[in-house]
Write a protein that binds this DNA or RNA. Structure first.
Lengths: 103, 103
DNA sequence: CTAACGTATCAGCCCATGGTGATGTCAGTC
DNA sequence: GACTGACATCACCATGGGCTGATACGTTAG
């Protein structure tokens, strides 16, 4: 089974502020202003992070007047979760059979 | 529900070579020499990456004479998978109820 | 129309991190 | 004991990425 975890997605997930953003967006859709209030980060900084999350396919954007609502894409996270779960399952199998390449 | 994904674990996962290492270790336990053959990376480089994976609790080491066997820790990956799955579930719920903070 | 606001983009700084060669350490071999 | 091989550690360099201030763009309010 091929491990096809998108490296960009993982890089996008490997940042505390971005995880905080995702956690907030999991609760409800928010626009940048809300995220500025919640995280205390600057608008420019958040805009950068949101671009990374959007490019990675982790969040969706919905323009609403001059606001932009961001929401989390469950399928993207589920795909990551599934691939790690499968990798873990493979490892459990290998461990149960004590598979070990000889030197 | 608190999102407690360990940042170090995610950072450890956010590297293509380390993902390749984990994928190889999921199949069977290997020592550094095997990983050098499989990945084509230098021994020093691999040793660095393996230290990161070990510090993150993603792999186990088992000394065997002058060799060191590395194996993947399924529970660590399962924990990550579970947290992402839960975050995704929360987001699905929020989307179903169309939760959106007003501006 | 003009002003104010929400958001995106740009250029730059700085630090974290990946890669490397040199070296150290420990186990097994002669 | 001397040597070789497996692995870890160190110092160094180069690149990438996060943060920032300045600025541009589009939308709504007055």
């Amino acid at each position: 089974m091929v491990m096809s975890v998108d490296s960009d997605v993982l890089k996008a997930l490997a940042d505390p502020l971005r995880i905080q953003i995702l956690t907030l967006l999991a609760q409800e859709a928010l626009c940048t202003t809300h995220l500025v209030e919640e995280t205390g980060a600057r608008q420019t900084n958040l805009s950068n992070h949101l671009k990374i999350l959007r490019d990675a396919g982790l969040v969706d954007t919905e323009p609403c007047g001059r606001f932009t609502y961001y929401s989390l894409r469950p399928d993207a996270l589920e795909a990551v979760a599934a691939e790690f779960a499968e990798l873990a399952a493979t490892a459990r199998e290998a461990a149960a059979e004590n598979r070990k390449r000889s030197c």
